[in-house]
């Protein structure tokens, strides 16, 4: 289990969704440790769990496979190697940040991060922009931007307001 979660959780680029898909393939199709229903339940509940979807999926799948031992094995194997890599990379950045060429490269990379963040924004909202829910979705995004930028509300308060609004919202009619 540690080898599987360690390999898939720490070597797949593309973020949580891509890695969850790779893990599902291994767990359901290759190893047959979980059936499709169990795997889908883990994905659904991972989306409802605060934090990172991938790590919640690893923990949920590990729990189904081996209770606490399985959950902790999957969570630790799925997170420790990549976290170590990030800590070391940050330490190296810190050490070399006074070098002129490194500063130039970092400035360029920081510019690209604006593009990365904007693409992450679009990737997040795109599934909710289908006909029948586009209006509510746009209103929710726009409202949260206004509350953050104009109202200067704390982000956690904005999320709580959104959850409350979501509870009382009605589904839009299909176009």
């Amino acid at each position: 289990m540690a080898a599987l979660f360690g390999r898939e959780g720490n070597v797949t680029f593309g973020g949580g969704i891509a890695t969850v898909a790779a893990l599902q393939r291994e767990l359901v199709n290759s190893k047959r440790w979980l059936d499709e229903e169990q795997s889908s339940m883990c994905v659904a509940l991972a989306r409802f769990t605060p934090g990172t979807v991938l790590l919640a999926f690893c923990t949920g799948a590990g729990w189904l496979l081996g209770r606490w031992k399985g959950a902790l094995t999957a969570l630790l194997a799925g997170s420790i190697p990549s976290a170590l890599l990030v800590a070391l990379m940050t330490g190296c950045f810190d050490l070399w940040s006074s070098q002129k060429l490194v500063q130039v490269a970092v400035s360029a990379v920081l510019a690209s991060s604006v593009g990365i963040l904007l693409s992450a924004f679009w990737t997040t909202i795109r599934p909710y922009m289908k006909a029948g829910r586009r209006g509510q979705s746009l209103a929710m995004v726009a409202g949260s931007i206004v509350l953050a930028m104009v109202g200067h509300l704390n982000p956690i308060l904005i999320l709580l307001l959104a959850a409350t609004a979501g509870y009382f919202l009605k589904e839009e009619q299909q176009a």
Binding site: L117, F121, I145
Partner: peptide, 23 residues
């Protein structure tokens, strides 16, 4: 519950975009 999650995901995208502007 699905509507609440959808609202929270969309709002978190909105506040993330708002935080991207100073960056």
């Amino acid at each position: 519950v699905k509507r609440m999650l959808r609202a929270v995901v969309l709002a978190s995208a909105g506040v993330s975009l708002a935080a991207t502007l100073p960056l």
